[in-house]
Amino acid sequence: MNKQTPLIEMKNIELAFGGVKAVNDVSVDLYPGEVVGVLGHNGAGKSTLIKVLSGAYKADAGEIFVNGEKATINNPRDARAYNIETIYQTLALADNLDAASNLFLGREIVNKFGMVDDDAMEAETRKIMQRLNPNFTNFKSPVSALSGGQRQSVAITRAVYFNARILIMDEPTAALGPQETAMVAELINQLKAEGIGIFLISHDIHDVMELCDRISVMKNGKLVGTENVADVTDDEILSMIILGKKPTKSN
């Protein structure tokens, strides 16, 4: 399967905060139509690693390749230009604005006078919500008035709407109920089928076993290893996360 060019290759990424190396010489890759889980304890460096890709942080060292070509990602705008979209754990929504304004934040639809066209944006938002979450009907209120699941819908819609090729999901189901979690799982499978590559950051082993093709485990800023999900057991993943121990290849 891995004969294709990877969508993303992050090579030897390093990033330190003060004296602490949050990410220490980590390399991961991602292929089209694949879900790669990035696992680790709190503080293992997985969010930091992924924020380097989304442009929120700038790496001290290392290289990023998009479709085999070297990419320069200095800020979130650069990442978006490479069709890398991110759903943050915090959702990163402007709570005082409505769903449409959030969906199009930074990429507003403007009319021929350069004026923001709220009606057109609302119409587009209604269209895509119809597809992704038909239960979503509250288009007028600021998103602070929405439920956790609805807010998540807005964040996901925003990432999917603009033809993402690479999707980063940081704990997408952490704040959701079982029904909404199932919805996210379904969405991930759907996006996978469309050839989108997904980095999934999660604590939840079950999520990971169910949704991911491969996993990259991090501990104390270092990469423990990358394995095919089919080749390892729950326990082996847990020992990678907790002990930082690579599974023995005997089985």
């Binding site: 800020n75 705008r77 915090t90 990163a92 402007a94 709570d95 005082n96 604005l97 934040l105 930074g106």
Partner: peptide, 20 residues
């Protein structure tokens, strides 16, 4: 857009930054 960004930044500066 400028006005929209003023309100977005006031609502959530981090989100505004992450939105480019």
């Amino acid at each position: 857009r400028f006005g929209r960004y003023v309100f977005a930044t006031g609502g959530n500066p981090d989100a505004a930054e992450l939105s480019g």
